[in-house]
Design a protein around this nucleic acid. Structure first.
Lengths: 232, 232
DNA sequence: TGTACATCAGTGAACGCGCGTTCACTGATGTAC
DNA sequence: TGTACATCAGTGAACGCGCGTTCACTGATGTAC
């Protein structure tokens, strides 16, 4: 009976997801370091050894968790990216993904840390994260490409750009951007760094006594960065 | 005999420093998570309990390590800050501290992570880090204040700056900056975020397949950010 | 200068803990004839 | 449809490990008279 087998497989997948959910809950409470198979098993009222039916061990679970974090962030970015109307200005569209990233990071700080924080030592992130990472980049950059296609992008003169930057940024120029000028590509990557920096500083608690209203400052910064890339 | 007592105290301090050094070595090899009193004791060929003569426990050691990381970074920044000549352009001076920060971060990635990475969960950074943090900020911002004092700063019009940003940035406007315009202060804080983002992304290994020459891109970015603040 | 006492650094054994992982097992669920 | 067998999920005990921390101690170093 094929259906019986399928039913078993479905249950198997569901339980695997329940384990992942429990792991996420533990992660957000105790941080990645304190994440232990035994604590997850306790939460699920299950023998620790039972987890080995679903994951090869602690490392495999952590890998799945990282993968899932990347995907969840990429999902949030894409959702934001497809939410703006076609009558919004390119500058307004530009802000959507960064804002979504910030909101996601603030509600999933430990997962944000898993992606952009200090790497867990002795642990290598799975190669499969490049896919959601690219999805995130594509969503972020979409308004830029759109504006360029519509001829609405104020492009910088490439004159005073160090030519050596060309090869240095080659992978991303060709992969993500739709034949934009070098200075625009450089400005966009710089914008990426600014974004990550802003969110890191806020999420990891470094705005204390510096920026009293992080949301306001973030919005203003994103807008200004958009302007500096040439969006209007 | 006061000298005997003093000698004892000096030895005490020396040993305390040796412990800290051993801890730093462990930190850079294994990361903060794996840092254990027993491994340090092993490296020093000492009984684990002996460490309690010098530190109240693991947390106290970690606190000292964090403090020391902040101070080391601030030292590097100040050294860079006082290294440039008075005939350098303000823009050239501006680059000195960021470069020093990057170099420091690359040679002390785990200590950088201790400061700017995901915080160790359940652990609060000591209040005393505000002093080196302020030293760092002051060193970074010095060329800006100097340029402003000399009337050499191209200041942005404050017209289209959201007035609400004023109170949001009040603490840093008053503390670190020498009566600069609001838009300049905002640009400087944005520059700070860009800097941290650039270094985080490089140190934590996120430039893979994106930026092939991080040093070149960093230098270019810092220069452009300096330009955007109004430095020449 | 010499002696009795106090301070202090460091030892080594011991504690209890939570961890990841292994393994032989039980019992339920699916499969083949 | 019924029966013998195979697959698989989950159990519970056990392993060995490294950890932070405590504690009674020894012996050296400094202090007071």
């Amino acid at each position: 009976m094929a259906t019986a087998r399928a039913a078993r497989d479905r249950v198997r997948l569901e339980i695997r997801n329940e384990i992942l959910e429990a792991a996420k809950k533990r992660l957000s409470q105790d941080g990645p370091v304190a994440l232990s198979l035994r604590s997850i098993a306790r939460d699920l009222e299950i023998a620790p050894s039972a987890l080995y039916r679903y994951f090869d061990g602690r490392d495999a679970l952590l890998t799945a968790l990282i993968q899932s974090a990347y995907e969840s962030l990429a999902d949030a970015a894409e959702a934001a990216s497809s939410s703006y109307g076609q009558d919004d200005s390119y500058l307004a569209r530009w802000s959507a993904v960064p804002r979504a990233m910030r909101v996601w990071a603030l509600s999933n700080p430990n997962e944000w840390g898993l992606i952009f924080g200090s790497p867990v030592p002795g642990y290598v992130a799975p190669e499969t994260t490049v896919v959601p990472y690219a999805r995130l980049a594509t969503a972020l950059v979409l308004p830029l490409n759109d504006a360029a296609k519509a001829g609405a992008l104020q492009s910088h003169p490439d004159a005073d750009v160090d030519a050596a930057l060309g090869p240095a940024l080659a992978p991303i120029s060709e992969g993500v951007f739709d034949r934009l000028t070098l200075s625009t590509v450089a400005a966009a990557v710089r914008a990426w760094a600014t974004l990550i920096g802003l969110i890191d500083l806020e999420v990891f608690g470094h705005w204390r006594n510096t920026v009293l209203d992080p949301a306001l400052f973030f919005d203003d910064s994103v807008r200004r960065v958009g302007l500096s890339i040439g969006l209007r």
